[in-house]
Design a protein around this nucleic acid. Structure first.
Lengths: 215, 215
DNA sequence: CCCAAATCGATCATCGATAATCGTCGTCCC
DNA sequence: GGGACGACGATTATCGATGATCGATTTGGG
């Protein structure tokens, strides 16, 4: 078998591995994921693989039918676009509440914007996306609404933002600067302005993605 | 009774059974759900029970830790309240789009409101909630945004609305009538009015729940 | 030659058993 | 008396094997 650094739960290791392969494209959209084949390849039994696939199905990364197995779910252009109105609605609500709770304390937010710039300098797309997502996540977390956070997390933003970034082909510094008006609104403790600005920020990305080339 | 048809996959039957017991209170919040015990009780092996519990965990009805098993997740008052801003945001977006797509065709929506009244006459709380949820679901479906629909469904409204209805102790006819302004806005094809009315409708419920007695 | 039923191989769903892990409780040493 | 340690029971995580179901292929009849 492969690397035998036995972490805690085998299922989790398998899940991470499969997810990594899906996101990297090693497993292509539509490709079948045969439980027994993956199991023997990893040197485990069918059970952990099966559980990992089930998790990934509920996370919307694979889809499966009874007795017909699992396959990699294709993420359509349409779906990427459809996320933005949902994000916009959720984050608008989050922002309004977060402004009150943060009360002008924007250090963490500012740090993410600066980290975005550094990542752009280094041409590190992965880091760029990571800090972009972190910026938005900070706001949703600061809302203090646990359900809101869980709902937002369920959108799996981090996994899809990379695709978006690639498809729109925007400059890293430009993306980072787009966060500045949101930051300013938070600093000025203007809840309505922050909510509106953030919503527009997201709708803006949605529009750009809509205009981008379909794969 | 919903479980009249013998479904094909055992896991699904087990899942439905456990869910029913959780919602009915047969399994109390915090109670441990021992895989082997449930399995022997149902006459199956551990595997289907295990998979059912895993599904329910990702649906937020149970929580579990590695090697420590699963237990029924407690739904706090706070969480019930927190749902409403999220619903309000999602359904506001949905309504705006749904008005355009429905283009004044409100027959289905009207049917649900009438069904709510009939259920209220019959004192059938279950049916009441079912049609209430159906009304809102029709709107979200009509938005045409698949991601929005999935996000909304992930909130498991149907399961929690029953609790809300009980805790607020509102009259069935009153609840049904609260849907009328939304219906009218859809009939008049006024997207902004529909969106705003629906958001207020939901915020109104959230407020009432906040004022209700904690369990 | 074409269509439908029977068959086959591949794969999933489930099973029963085993290994791994946790919390508990008694014991020992101080 | 108290705290650390280790064996024990309970339960989960994983395994290997078996039954069930699907899609494709073959076979037989028209």
């Amino acid at each position: 078998m492969g690397t035998s650094v036995t972490r805690v739960v085998l299922r989790e290791q398998v899940k991470e591995l499969i997810l990594e392969r899906i996101l990297s494209g090693a497993y292509e959209p539509g490709e079948r994921l045969v439980e027994t084949r993956i199991a023997s390849e990893l040197g485990t039994s069918q059970a952990p693989v099966r559980e990992a696939l089930r998790d990934l199905e509920l996370l919307r990364f694979v889809e499966s039918e009874p007795f017909r197995g699992a396959r990699v779910r294709a993420v359509s252009q349409e779906e990427l676009v459809e996320i933005y109105p949902v994000r916009a609605a959720l984050e608008e609500v989050a922002a309004r509440e977060a402004v009150r709770r943060l009360d002008g304390d924007v250090d963490a937010l500012e740090a993410e914007v600066e980290a975005m710039h550094r990542a752009a300098d280094a041409n590190d797309l992965h880091a760029q996306v990571e800090h972009d997502v972190a910026f938005h996540r900070l706001i949703v977390e600061a809302s203090g609404n646990q359900v809101l956070l869980e709902t937002w997390l369920a959108l799996r933003i981090e996994a899809r933002t990379i695709i978006t970034a690639v498809r729109t082909g925007l400059d890293g510094h430009a993306i980072a600067e787009l966060h500045r008006p949101v930051l300013d609104a938070f600093r000025r403790r203007d809840a309505e302005l922050a909510a509106t600005t953030l919503r527009r920020h997201l709708e803006h990305f949605g529009e750009m993605l809509k205009g981008a080339d379909s794969p």
